[in-house]
Every structure is written in C-alpha cells, then in structure tokens.
Computed example of a mutant assay.
Amino acid sequence: MGNVISVNTGPIVPAEFARRRGRSAIKKLPTTGRVKVGPLGLEGDEQAEYFHGGELQAVYAYAREDLDWWSERLQRPLRNGIFGENLDLIDFDASGAVLAEKWQVGEVLLQVMAPRMACGTFGGWMQETGWAKRFNGARRPGVYLRVLEGGSVAVGDRVEVVWRPARHVTVAEAVGAILDEQDVLRRITAMADEEPEWDRAAMMFHVSNRTRNRAAATSATTPENAPAGTPATADATSNPAPASTGNPTSTGAPATADAPTPATTTATPTPSATTPNPTGPAPTPPTATATQGTQAPQATPAPPAQHTGQEAPATPDRPTGAVDA
C-alpha cells in the first residue's frame, strides 16, 4: 500500500521540442486540493498526441522511487510531474504492477492497462541524447490506467491493490512485448484470454505486427507455450495423425486420401448398424487413387491409403488489439 504525493495536470501548449507537431502537454504541474477524475482522466489535464490519453490511458502514474533512481543517473533533480505523470506515488512499485490489476486511489477505482513507452517528444522535453532508448531499456515505465469508477484524488490518498488476475505479467515485463520479446507477448495474450473484461487494446497498440506474427507462429509449433484455452496443434512432421477410419480428423476436416474406399463392385454394400458413418454417404473415390478402380471386387477392404502428411494447416492464434480492423 502506498500514497499519492503529487497530483499533476497540464494543458496543450506550443513546444519547440515537439518537432513533429509543435505542441505538447507533457509539462504537468502539481495541483492543490482534490481533483475530479472521469473516464478521460483528470479535470484540467490534456494530451496533445492521440496515443497518450483516451479512456484506456486516462491516467499516468509513476513512482517517486523510480524518479529518484533516474535522478541519480542523470545527475540532476527531478521534480514530481517531470515525466508527464498525473500521479506521483510513494511506497508503491508502479512498474511492478500487474497488467489488469485494479487500484483503489482515494475515491477512484483504476485498472492497469499498459506501460508508458518513451516517444520523441519525451526525449525533446528531457533534453537527453538517446532518451527514448534509454528510458524504454530501463524497464521503469510507469503505468497507464483506465478509470473504472470516477471520483476525486488528492495528495495523501492511499493507493491499494484490490484485485489481481490469476496470471501475472508486470508492467515492466510488458515492455518486453513491445521490444520484440515473443514469449512475453504470449503470456499477455494468455492472460487477456482469461480476463475478457480487461481490454488489451492499449497494450497491443505499440506491439509490432512482426512481433505478433512471430509469437503466433511459435505458439502454433510449440503447444506447451500456447495460450490457455488454445487447442494444441499436432506437428505433422514428428507426430503424424493416423490414417482415418471414416471419422473426421482432429482438425475437423478428413484428409481426402485417408479414408479407405472399396474398389468398384456390382454388389450393394450392406450398411453396418454398429459403425455409423458420421459424415454421411461414403465419398466418391478421389482421382489420386484411380488405380483402385481397376481392382477386382474383393471381400476385404483395400489397405488404407498411405498418409500423405497434407493435413489441414494449423491456424495461428493471433493476438487481437486496437489496431485490428
């Protein structure tokens, strides 16, 4: 349990250091008294960039201990609000927060959504060479939060974790998914699948398609790492499925060469009451087994066709996010 030591807000203003847009609201200054908090964040606070703010990133919180850590490395004092955060916390590990967990902060109920990733404007504001890479690499990102229940906050309010998901992925770890660590992305996807009330869009916004595709491909070939609830996919090269005996294959579609088909005969086959065919009438023999058509009528079925390995391809469990259309 920690406490709020500063509540910070700031408007959009012209900014030379924000070279792309020429404006910024990163300059947050401490307020006094209680500040109202609604679905879009703190009253009187603004964001100049669309990827900051919004309902899924309404509040940004940072730990005073992490500011002090940076102060030692930058060899200069860092005031509360200097990173553009709305809430400065003490005795609370913000970067160690778990994705999807819920905080009670004064009257307000918040939910952890994503880590903050440094952008060019942040680097210009800090006037530190290579700041974005340095900040992101330190894994002390602070937390973007969604407002579940509004109210007001003020200096001195308690910060308490009131709920956590079963699967734990910390905000600091989540940075790895944005930096191309597929194993972390798979863990986040598994957690999100189990917690449908947590919207993964803010987290997935910065994850590249390359990272998503590689993580999904690895999940498809290593079932033990697949997200919970995802059926394991058989590896056709190391563990081929047995030849079909008339039942659907494990992929839901029987392979065309798997079902043994009797050779052409004038006798009418007698249906079996003990072995119903769930797929209906026997399929017409495929052209790939045309040699069977020249066989004489026989009392015993032809041997099953050799398994070709051409099973229905596995479909990767692609993580979803805000950028999915």
Rank of each mutant, 00 (worst) to 15 (best):
V4M: 05
V4L: 11
S6F: 03
S6L: 06
V7I: 01
G10H: 01
G10F: 00
G10N: 05
P11I: 04
A15H: 04
F17R: 06
R19S: 08
A25Q: 03
A25P: 05
K28C: 07
L29V: 15
G33I: 04
G33H: 05
V35E: 02
G38Q: 09
G41N: 03
E49F: 08
H52L: 11
H52T: 08
Q57H: 09
A58S: 04
Y60N: 02
D68F: 02
Q75Y: 11
R76M: 12
P77A: 09
G81I: 05
I82L: 12
N86A: 09
I90D: 03
D93E: 07
S95Q: 01
V98E: 06
A100S: 15
E101T: 02
W103V: 06
Q104I: 10
E107P: 00
V112K: 03
V112S: 07
M113C: 14
M113L: 10
A114V: 00
M117N: 07
A118R: 01
C119R: 03
G124N: 09
W125N: 05
W125V: 04
M126A: 12
M126P: 00
E128T: 14
F135D: 00
N136P: 07
G137H: 04
R140F: 11
Y144G: 03
V147H: 02
S152C: 09
V153W: 04
V153E: 02
V153M: 07
V155W: 01
E160Y: 09
V162F: 07
R164C: 09
P165A: 08
P165Y: 03
A166D: 13
V169N: 00
A174G: 04
A177K: 01
Q182R: 14
Q182I: 15
A190V: 00
E194D: 13
E195W: 11
A201P: 00
A202I: 04
F205V: 06
V207G: 00
S208N: 05
R212I: 14
T218Q: 13
T221I: 15
T222F: 14
E224Q: 12
N225P: 04
P227E: 01
G229P: 02
P231V: 10
P231C: 11
A232P: 09
A234N: 10
D235G: 06
A236T: 13
A241W: 11
T245Q: 15
G246P: 00
G246F: 02
P248L: 12
P248I: 14
A253R: 14
P260N: 05
A263T: 12
T264W: 13
A267K: 12
T270P: 03
S272E: 11
N277F: 12
N277H: 13
A290N: 11
Q295M: 15
Q295F: 12
A296C: 02
Q298Y: 08
P303T: 13
H307R: 08
T308E: 00
A314T: 10
A314D: 05
